[in-house]
């Protein structure tokens, strides 16, 4: 009797939390319906596609193809494409939770009015993350459709890949939310951007990690993007073994850690 009561209260409060975070995400959906923002949204999708064409196809003609760990031979485009989805999920989630969160907080002062409502600071951050994931998922769907049409993967594999792209977004969203609370000024974003570029270039995106010597290889295998790329590439090329669970576990762990640290920090920052 008492447990049902407690459980129903917990469920009710979780539902209210969910509703309030959704309301924050809804604000962005509403804003996105206005014209100027549309271009920004569309442009976010175009970038990974351009990289795929330039590096995957253009440079790919010079590279030839790669043989994956399980012996599958893939074209360079099929090798690079999954990495582009992972990187796009990273960039979207990080941009929304660091730069845009900071801008909305410090310059647009958007949250000053939100904290006066029942919405808690952490729910604001969750709502922004939810929006980032939604946006990222739309990009992923579009990109997977193109990959399927170009014969770089199959429809079923693409379907299996979609949740993995959301997981990558969630992991980077968690990291981004912590970074977002640590920002002091716009200059700090230069450091984040360099970190992103370094991961984008070296996390097994354009060439196999086996090509690196031991120390750089260990460092790159610690980055979350490495695991994101490995997971998504395993799914789109359908060449994986049990180690894929390690990638999933790593990303879940990063997401959980990031969100729990951010939960504590956002409150202190928005309500001094």
């Amino acid at each position: 009797m008492l447990t049902t009561l407690v459980l129903s209260r917990v469920a009710a409060s979780a539902a209210a939390r969910g509703q309030r975070s959704t309301a924050v995400a809804w604000r962005n959906v509403t804003a996105a319906r206005h014209s100027a923002y549309w271009w920004v949204l569309v442009s976010g999708f175009v970038e990974p596609l351009l990289y795929l064409l330039s590096i995957g196809v253009g440079v790919g003609a010079l590279v030839g193809g790669f043989t994956l760990a399980d012996g599958t031979r893939v074209s360079y485009a099929a090798y690079v494409a999954p990495a582009m989805i992972a990187a796009s999920a990273m960039n979207g989630a990080v941009a929304e939770t660091t730069m845009n969160f900071f801008g909305k907080m410090k310059y647009m002062r958007l949250y000053d009015s939100v904290i006066a409502t029942p919405v808690a600071p952490f729910e604001i951050a969750l709502g922004e993350l939810l929006w980032a994931l939604l946006r990222g998922a739309m990009y992923s769907v579009a990109f997977l459709v193109i990959m399927t049409a170009a014969g770089l993967t199959t429809p079923l594999r693409a379907l299996a890949t979609l949740p993995a792209t959301v997981l990558v977004g969630l992991a980077f969203g968690g990291i981004g939310m912590v970074l977002g609370t640590l920002m002091r000024s716009w200059q700090d974003f230069d450091y984040i951007a360099v970190g992103q570029v370094a991961m984008f270039l070296f996390s097994g995106t354009f060439a196999p990690a086996e090509g690196y010597s031991l120390v750089p290889r260990i460092i790159l295998e610690l980055t979350p993007l490495y695991h994101g790329v490995a997971l998504i590439r395993g799914l789109t090329t359908w060449s994986f073994d049990w180690s894929i669970l390690g990638h999933v576990g790593y990303l879940v762990g990063v997401a959980w850690l990031g969100l729990s640290i951010a939960a504590r920090r956002t409150g202190r920052m928005l309500c001094p």
Partner: peptide, 14 residues
């Protein structure tokens, strides 16, 4: 970083 990633790493295969 771009130069290293593309030129050195991918370059090996090319």
């Amino acid at each position: 970083l771009f130069l290293l990633a593309m030129g050195k790493t991918v370059g090996t295969y090319i």
